[in-house]
Design a protein around this nucleic acid. Sequence first.
DNA 1: CAGTGAGCGAGCTTCCGCTTGACTT
Length: 738
Amino acid sequence: MSKNIVIVESPAKSKTIEKFLGKDFQVLASYGHVRDLPSKTGSVDPENGFAMNYKVADGSEKNLKAIASAVGKAENVYLATDPDREGEAISWHVLEELKRRLKKKMDAVSVHRIVFTEITKSAVKHAVDNPRTLNDSLIDAQQARRALDYLVGFTLSPILWRKVRRGLSAGRVQSVALRLICERESEIEAFKPEEYWSIDGLFNTPTSEELVAKLHTYNGKKVEKFSFTNEADAKAVVETLEKETYSITDIEKKKARRNPSPPFITSTLQQEASRKLGFSARKTMTTAQRLYEAGHITYMRTDSVHLAQEAVQAMREEIGSRWGKQYVPEKPNFYKNKQQNAQEAHEAIRTTRFDARGEDLKLEADQTKLYNLIRNRAMACQMTPAEFDQTALTVEAASKQHSFRATGRILTFPGFLKVYQESGMEIDDSLLPSVEVNDAMSVKEIQPEQHFTEPPPRYSEASLVKALEEYGIGRPSTYAAIISTLLDRQYVRLDKRRFYPEDVGRIVTKFLTEHFEKYVDYNFTAHMEDDLDAISRGEKKWVPVLDEFWSPFKQLTEEKTESVKKSDITAEATGETCPACGKGEIMIRLGRYGRFKGCNNYPECKHTEPLEGDKPTEPKAPPEDTGVSCPQCKADGATIVKRTSRRGKIFFSCGTYPKCDYAVWDKPIVEPCPECSWPILTVKETKRFGTVKKCPQKECGWQDKETVKRKAPEDKAAPKKAATKKPAAKRAPRKKAS
DNA sequence: CAGTGAGCGAGCTTCCGCTTGACTT
């Protein structure tokens, strides 16, 4: 029984903080948000001042009960949720629930709001000593954000159900993510490779060393990427160049430095883990969560590059003792957040100690890899820059009309590179031969090379997260979920770790960008954030801000629901006449399995053909015959064959389909049912019972006796069978829409 | 459950952002 209760969001945090504060304090976790808008219509009422109908989430009841019972016996409650918009709202929701549950008892409890951005004893104590009250403006801003997301999603999605296909979704975040992928695909399709030629000179120095240099000027003009665009031009240039004599005319030496990258935040961690370790965004986050819970790293959902003083000090000590003073900068390196709308509630992602490598901590293999990545990146950010000697040589023709250049780079001091190299920024030493000005260079060969420009690459998980972050769309806690949503809706697919839009995804994007451009604009979120900031600062009120958004949005959705026909979206005219009826026009339509061509005259004419450019439908192998006669139609020679459903599931059905529609899931055998005498049984291999025979007749339900026997004692031994069954039933309506 | 769509219209789907478990086959 504690006099003082502290509420935080995460249970891992609560344990640490409890240690700092001692016996008089009990720390409880809210486990994130405790109330939310139910996923159904009417949770926000725009007609009634945007009234928000919050409900306690299923999983939160337990947590709220624990909090209420502790607070009921306490004198002080410290709301210590994260110091950002969402955190402020969580505190408010918790308080609202406390008031509702404890009623008058709450009068005896003093309520304080405290915040800290790092979990250290001093920071937490300082926070407790400097409480404030809840910030209503910040809470209002969060509510505006929540209502807007709900209204956009729950207004646009039903339009998609009616106009495109059931079960689809649209939202402020996911629709822009989808748009990025679709527009990239359009760019790739519209891309026309352009030819260009590069020309390298291969020279010999006076000491017979080789030098490769790029053509830098030609006929007195600087050579650019598209200076030579065909073979004839390139050949002519080569001929001219071959006739010249060359010498070194300039040697330029300078020192160059490169600074380390900032420590990880969620998005950069996901990107680097993807590139360096091949982890998906989801895998990175669950692995990081384990490390966080074990106390090995700081919080993994953050958009701040800030580092705690103590951590910086510990890094400097470790760097100094491990590699020497020359790797420790005079003053700690300081990093600033690039993003505009960063909430900066947490620290950057770093390890909690620096003297241990992942291998020393006896972690799982994946955890070790991620731990080391995080530790190295953090340490590197507090190390000295890498230093190079950079040399540029100019090889000029005697005519002074043409010149080549070569650059070389030698690492003279590794600095942070000793520990960490960001992928895509690798540095290789490139050595140049030792030459002096006026040295004659003999031409060994002038090499022309043909190139073509390449289309922009399709997004990977990493590059998509990066793009979203740059637009300020989505949050650290949602990047992985956004990707899952696009995949779940089958808007996109991943192939060799690259995103490809599916037909439905492209149709949805086309529809949304054509008719709801403003709401799927890349800057829509940024504009929203400006408004939310104004609300946070008390400069605007949340209801008028929502009104300003809602009135035109509502009007637009009503107009579009009326004016845009389903066929405008999902059908595309081709101008071809139907070869079957000779009257109808062939349209490209969206079917369950993608797009196809069909006659306009449907349903009178049912002519269809596959879309060109589609993968040719593989010639169907004749289905495997089981030799078992069909027990239903009993037609002569009607046997059961093995087939694959459209979803890839194997089933067995009568070979005379569609005449006879008899079908079973498991493999049939000729053996009459001992119970109902149905002529066949089915067999299935299971791990637990081996081969199980069953009667396919549902009303019979006979099963292999051995199975029943072996199963029986288990039922008795586990009287909680009913209890274990419940979640299974609960699980059924979840996702996995079949 | 076996090639696809229209419209009729039961009953149903859907947002974003916080946080962790604890069901299995």
